[in-house]
């Protein structure tokens, strides 16, 4: 089930916006495609453009780039993923978050899909 209240990209990232700060992760659909994550290359704090490469997720047989759903400044990364990359699989919408972005234009969220639209998107993909 795709959680309500988050926004989604066609690259299978989600973003949850609270007080102008977006928390970013990958969707359940994405983590299933990737297989068990063995390593997360986390971003460094600093400015990031929308759709720019943010992080890399590696499994034993695949690698996947994570793109920034919206522009802003990375202010925090999920350091727990350094020792427990499997959180991306196990709790992709909660403890498996990747980073937090202080959004430069929170209104740009209108470019993203809501839960219903994303659900329809992955059904058709």
């Amino acid at each position: 089930m795709v959680p309500q209240g988050l926004y989604y990209t066609d690259q299978h990232e989600w973003i949850k916006i609270e007080d102008g700060v977006g928390t970013v992760g990958i969707t359940d659909h994405a983590q299933q495609q990737l297989g068990e994550v063995t390593f997360v290359e986390l971003p460094e704090n600093g400015p990031v453009d929308a759709n720019a490469e943010l992080a890399v997720l590696e499994s034993s047989k695949a690698a996947s780039d994570v793109y920034a759903p919206m522009a802003g400044e990375v202010i925090e990364v999920n350091e727990a993923l350094e020792s427990q990359p499997e959180l991306v699989n196990q709790q992709c919408y909660t403890d498996g978050w990747i980073c937090k972005i202080k959004l430069s234009d929170p209104d740009a969220v209108s470019n993203l899909m809501d839960a219903a639209a994303y659900e329809a998107f992955i059904t058709n993909e």
Partner: peptide, 14 residues
């Protein structure tokens, strides 16, 4: 063989 996610057959141009 391990850490194959670095390699060309997976990462291609990257």
């Amino acid at each position: 063989m391990t850490l194959q996610a670095r390699e060309q057959h997976i990462r291609r141009a990257k």
